[in-house]
Amino acid sequence: MKRLFLLAFTLLTTSLVYAQKVDADLLRIKQRMDSVVKFTATVTLNLDVPFIQMPTKKALVSYTKGKRMQFTSKDFVMLPKRGLDFSLSEIFKYPFITVDRGTEKRNGRALKTLNVIPTDAKSDLVLVTLYMDTKAARIMESDINTRKDGSYSLLMQYNAAKNILPDYVEAAFAIEKLKIPFNFMGKDTKIDRKKMRGMDTKTGKIKMKMSDYKITLR
């Protein structure tokens, strides 16, 4: 009986501590995000990488809760491995704790800053910094550090206050310099070694503009 009481006490205190560690505003945003069961949208992609020249591309994006986001396009499109998780399900997938970092002014707007630290080793995320608009109950920016895919940041914009999902997402990530075998170089391509050495790692951006959203809510 004594042991049972001890176990029940431990479970209760652990869950209370855990509950205390998750920010209430974030839980509100998570709840709002959780209401999205599925959605489709047209994405206009603009790649901004120093050594890549690519025209604007269009793709159709479809998402169903619990599944990976799917992209289809008539053309060849390059999609970032990170930064496509508009619903932020990756953050909420495993247990986490949050640390309130106060308020920070970003793009002329005061945003609540929060560190999210996953507590499960299965999560690929190490540390996430979220910048939240608590009034509109949505995440505006995030800096994400992962175990396998390095760091990246997301900037989200919304056309209307009621919109749950962003209408514009800008994902910025570090990209290694391009290693091109000599056979693929144009005959008159000059190799600027000084420039190449300075190009070890660059920051790439992909700008995604969403339109024609069809969202199914719970």
Partner: peptide, 17 residues
């Protein structure tokens, strides 16, 4: 694959080149 190897670290490719 050889040509686009570096890019595969950061991108998924949709469609064929």
């Amino acid at each position: 694959d050889l040509l686009l190897n570096t890019l595969r670290q950061n991108f998924y490719f949709e469609g064929s080149l």
